[in-house]
């Protein structure tokens, strides 16, 4: 819940963070139905796809959609939570130093001794939240094993240090995301992890859809959003020819935002798209040429 501490910032307890406003999400395929079904069946989900294809946004959207109050009237979050309708979303960005205790919890020193503090995963399990582990491959391998008991029929989280086993609350949903683009042997998901999830693949949306997304997100002119979508498509053609990943919808949106704020289109594309996606000079130049062909 939002605790108003002065007027400087909003602060939420981790399991009380809800997606309240409808996030913009344009379904490309049947991913919404799949997610709903998996949620109902308590099957963990793996979101696969290159960066900037809307994985995170999708999770936010689903958290909002699944927890949407049936009544149209806006309720206070606290009330909604008590109704058990809003579903908290706990996002954990995985990094290479993420340890098991970072997820599960640890003892802290206290005036009197030690005090246990739950980690975000534990809190998600306890509160029945959607727990989204972003970029799971980045985490240390020993950490990923930790989610195994949660990701199969057991749905439990052993907390060794406390000698507990936590049963996941109804509504707990494990979602992980994974970018296969890295393709490095070191950054691959273990088979045993992979096969505990259903996988929803995210690909860059088709140009018409992407143009709509760019337009809605950035607020640039429809014509510009079309051109940006075209640019995205062309750049993706270069994948495997010098680019590891094409331009994501996200960078196109950034470019669109800059344009909407009065930056000249070519310039906007240079700073948001060209320079961001590669350091290879020749590739940069080629993309710049594409940009200068598409934009006046």
């Amino acid at each position: 819940m939002a605790k108003i501490t002065g007027e400087l910032y909003n602060q939420f307890t981790i399991e009380e963070y809800y997606v309240e406003d409808k996030p913009f999400y344009l379904p490309v395929n049947d991913e919404v139905e799949l997610f709903e079904a998996a949620y109902a069946a308590r099957v963990p989900i793996l979101l696969k796809g290159p960066t900037g294809t809307g994985k995170t946004r999708f999770v936010e959207y689903m958290a909002w959609k699944l927890g949407r109050p049936i009544a149209a009237a806006k309720r206070s979050p606290a009330k909604a939570a008590s109704n058990g309708r809003l579903i908290p979303l706990i996002t954990i960005a995985c990094h290479e130093d993420l340890t098991a205790s970072d997820l599960v919890g640890r003892y802290l020193l206290d005036a009197e001794g030690t005090r246990w503090i739950d980690g975000p995963l534990t809190r998600a399990v306890k509160s029945g939240a959607i727990c989204y582990l972003d970029e799971i491959v980045e985490a240390r391998k020993d950490t990923t094993v930790l989610i195994h008991p949660l990701a199969d029929h057991r749905r439990v989280l052993p907390v060794e240090k406390q000698g507990l086993v936590l049963e996941a609350k109804k509504g707990f949903q494990l979602v992980i995301s994974y970018n296969p683009g890295y393709q490095s042997a070191l950054k691959d998901l273990k088979e045993s992890t992979r096969q505990r999830f259903i996988a929803i693949e995210f690909t860059p949306p088709p140009p018409e859809v992407e143009a709509k997304i760019v337009e809605a997100e950035s607020g640039c002119a429809p014509q510009q959003s079309l051109a940006l979508a075209k640019l995205g498509e062309k750049i993706r053609n270069l994948q495997e020819h010098g680019l590891r990943e094409g331009a994501s919808t996200r960078v196109l949106i950034y470019a669109g935002k800059l344009m909407a704020n009065g930056i000249a289109p070519r310039r906007a594309c240079h700073v948001a798209v060209v320079w961001g996606i590669t350091d290879d000079h020749e590739v940069q130049r080629s993309i710049e040429e594409v940009v200068s062909s598409i934009f006046e």
């Binding site: 498509e233 062309k234 750049i235 053609n237 270069l238 020819h241 010098g242 020749e282 590739v283 130049r285 080629s286 993309i287 040429e289 594409v290 062909s293």
Partner: peptide
């Protein structure tokens, strides 16, 4: 050549 080749690939989507 390199730049043009990538440019052509980008436009056409073919190798």
């Amino acid at each position: 050549k390199g730049v043009l080749m990538l440019y052509c690939r980008a436009l056409s989507g073919a190798d």
